[in-house]
Amino acid sequence: MKADQSLDCLGLYCPMPIVKTAERFKKLKKGEVLEVVADDKGIKLDMPAWCQATGHEFLGAEEAGGEIKVYVKKTHD
C-alpha cells in the first residue's frame, strides 16, 4: 500500500505506537496516508479502535515476518 509518510514503531509496546501516531497526525495534511511499522501485535486491533475514536480512516494492515504495517488516512483536521 502507498503512504505519504512512514512512522517507525519497531520495538515499542502499547500504547507508544498509538501515542506516536496521534502526535504525527498533527503534522499530517488532510487526505494523507501514514504507514505505521510496528512489531507489537496489539496494533492490529488498537489502530482500528483509534480510528473509530478519532474518526480517521483505517485502510488496512499488512504482516510479513513479524513486522506489521498499518495504514491510516487523515480524514479531518
Partner: peptide
Amino acid sequence: FMLAITGVSMGM
C-alpha cells in the same frame, strides 16, 4: 498512566 496518555491520543 498508560490509559491516560492513550486517552489523550484518542482525543479525550
